[in-house]
Simulated scan of single mutants.
Amino acid sequence: MTPDPLARIDETTEALAALRDAFTGEEPLDDALQRLADTAARVMPDADAVTVSVVTADQPRTAAATDPRLIDVDEKQYSADRGPCLESARSMKTVRAVVGEHLDLWPEFEAAADRTGVRAYLSVPVVLPASDDGEAQHIATLNIYSYTAAAFDPFDEKLMRLFTTAASATINSAQRWQRSRNQVLHLERALESRAEIEQAKGVLMAVHACTADEAFTMLVERSQHENTKLRGVARSLLESVKGS
């Protein structure tokens, strides 16, 4: 029995809502991608397994999988530098493949898929957030495997493209939230460090009747001598004063 399209849209909408609520930004990106794979496997009727490939300039990798046995099909594409997964990432388009119809184009993918019993494959691009070191956004692909050759019609392709677009926006928002939170935490630590250093300078100025610059030089010299961060030296000095 063919699933009702409207019912499937409702199911996908509900799944996206659950996905959005789950992404708090506190979990690692790979955990978020695993959640994405698990959700896609639930909402796609013909999906027997789902993986997520992250395609970077260095080396593509499978970041998530609902069935580890299918990771080999992904990895054969990576090593050959060709296949529907990479085609989807590079073209930013949905790619559907029926095993047996692309022997000349993707022989490595064809052989690996055939060994696992896969008969149909749908790969949909996902835009991932920029990395913390400022690199550009990465591209991932949501790879959906089916043991039925007739799986995945045009409606499935459009639905999954909508799904990945919404999921991409959700993941990006969560990751941006996490980066902003980290920046705030770093700033708070920096301000705490500065406050402790200023207090330690004040102690040294009072004890040695020296200037602020001279007190700071004392702290730096002690930091270098003890191979300890400046904040640690300042904190130690303040604790010794409190304990005396």
Score class of each variant (00 low, 15 high):
223 S>C: 04
200 A>H: 02
8 R>F: 05
242 K>W: 07
133 D>S: 09
31 D>A: 14
13 T>V: 12
77 Q>A: 09
148 T>S: 13
30 D>E: 15
61 R>P: 01
105 L>I: 08
172 N>M: 10
163 F>L: 14
216 F>C: 02
185 L>C: 02
147 Y>C: 07
170 T>F: 15
89 A>G: 05
116 T>F: 15
30 D>T: 14
116 T>K: 14
53 S>T: 15
164 T>P: 03
82 R>H: 14
73 V>Y: 08
137 Q>L: 04
56 T>E: 14
130 A>C: 04
13 T>C: 06
152 F>Q: 07
100 G>K: 02
198 E>W: 01
207 V>G: 00
216 F>M: 01
69 R>Q: 10
209 A>S: 14
14 E>L: 12
200 A>W: 11
145 Y>R: 01
213 D>E: 11
33 L>N: 11
138 H>A: 10
146 S>L: 09
61 R>C: 02
125 P>K: 10
74 D>L: 11
1 M>T: 12
167 A>T: 11
143 N>L: 05
198 E>G: 00
125 P>I: 12
90 R>E: 15
57 A>D: 15
40 A>L: 06
173 S>V: 06
121 Y>K: 00
58 D>H: 11
213 D>V: 02
65 A>S: 15
187 L>Y: 07
187 L>K: 12
230 L>Q: 09
224 Q>M: 12
156 D>R: 07
86 L>S: 01
163 F>K: 06
90 R>H: 14
27 E>K: 08
122 L>K: 05
57 A>K: 04
51 T>Y: 06
71 I>Q: 13
35 R>H: 13
146 S>F: 07
208 H>A: 09
93 K>H: 10
43 V>W: 10
94 T>L: 08
2 T>I: 11
209 A>T: 08
189 R>T: 13
117 G>A: 09
110 E>N: 03
214 E>G: 00
152 F>G: 02
233 V>R: 01
36 L>Y: 01
51 T>F: 05
230 L>Y: 08
188 E>F: 06
216 F>N: 01
97 A>E: 06
206 A>R: 12
174 A>L: 03
9 I>D: 03
206 A>F: 10
101 E>Y: 09
118 V>W: 07
243 G>K: 04
46 D>A: 15
134 G>K: 07
86 L>C: 02
182 N>C: 04
33 L>T: 05
175 Q>I: 09
203 V>S: 02
65 A>C: 09
120 A>R: 05
54 V>R: 13
153 D>V: 12
148 T>Y: 02
159 L>R: 15
243 G>Y: 05
53 S>R: 00
202 G>Q: 01
140 A>I: 05
233 V>W: 10
239 E>I: 04
